[in-house]
Computed example of a mutant assay.
Amino acid sequence: MGRREDSDLDREMADLPPERRWREWMCRIEAVLFASTKPVAREDLARVVGQGVAVDLLIADLAADLVGRPYDVVQVGGGWMLRTRPAYAPAIRAAADLGGQSLNLSEFDLAVLAAIAFHQPISRDGLKDIFGKEISRDLIGRLADRDLIGTGPREPRRGAPYTFVTTETFLAAFGMQSLRDLPDPEQLEDAGLAEP
């Protein structure tokens, strides 16, 4: 989110009764989350409510308020966003032009993305070791252009190649709060989705 201060915004709303003030703060947070295409950090949400207000409690109340609605508040990485409940995905696909929102990744692209997620930070050489072939700069570029991966620390060796890591956009695209939500590699092996 932008860091623009709005001097016209009355954050304290001292003239409102406490219950109405709380409801207005919840509405402000919902409006910010609705307008954002990326997770919104706690610090950014705190800028629209009064001094010392517990943003986590507002979000918890907003989440409770949204029960039964087609979307809910989810934590992604270091922030929150509104996400449509999976049960409504077919209706959205049938009626909405999602255009650039679809990942449209090939199976191999997804495999490379999964390797980056599980082994990050990892260099192109590390990916070559996993796949037995060179990973093209075009593929890395496509994943980076979609903001699914970014550059990590450089490897501590001659030439100091870049490494790759996943981003908050990756977490949001796959419905994860953090990388701890990745499936356990042993479970993938047991399910026949990965090699030992």
Rank of each mutant, 00 (worst) to 15 (best):
A172Q: 03
G52V: 13
L58K: 02
T163H: 07
E134A: 15
A63W: 01
V67C: 08
A91T: 09
P17S: 13
G68C: 09
Q187E: 15
G77N: 05
L58H: 00
L139V: 09
G100D: 13
V73F: 02
G141H: 13
P196M: 08
Q120H: 01
A115V: 08
L66I: 09
D65M: 13
Y71I: 07
I135L: 05
R20G: 01
Y162Q: 13
I140Y: 00
D44G: 09
Q101I: 03
E195M: 07
M13I: 06
L103H: 02
G79N: 08
P153F: 04
A95C: 10
K128A: 10
D61S: 09
L57A: 14
M26F: 03
R21E: 01
L143T: 00
G99V: 04
G126S: 07
L193A: 11
E155V: 15
M81V: 12
F118W: 11
K133S: 12
E186C: 06
D97M: 05
V53R: 14
V76C: 07
S123A: 14
D109W: 03
T37W: 04
G175R: 12
R23C: 02
I130M: 09
A54L: 14
I116L: 01
P70N: 06
V67L: 14
A94L: 11
P90G: 04
V112M: 04
L33Q: 04
G52H: 10
M13N: 06
G150Q: 07
P196E: 14
I92K: 10
W80K: 06
E19G: 11
P18G: 13
G141E: 07
I92F: 12
L98W: 02
E155Y: 06
P90Q: 08
R83F: 00
P185T: 02
A114S: 13
W22M: 11
G132S: 01
D72L: 15
G77C: 05
G79Q: 05
V49G: 00
I122V: 15
S7D: 09
A64D: 14
T166S: 10
G99L: 04
A114P: 01
P156Q: 12
E30H: 14
A194P: 00
L57I: 09
F108V: 06
D184Y: 10
L66D: 06
D129A: 15
D184Q: 12
S102Y: 10
L82F: 05
R4W: 03
E43N: 12
D97V: 06
R85M: 11
D181Q: 02
G192R: 07
E43C: 06
D6F: 07
L179W: 04
K128I: 00
L45S: 00
R3D: 09
L179V: 13
P161T: 13
F170R: 00
V76S: 01
S102Q: 12
E134F: 12
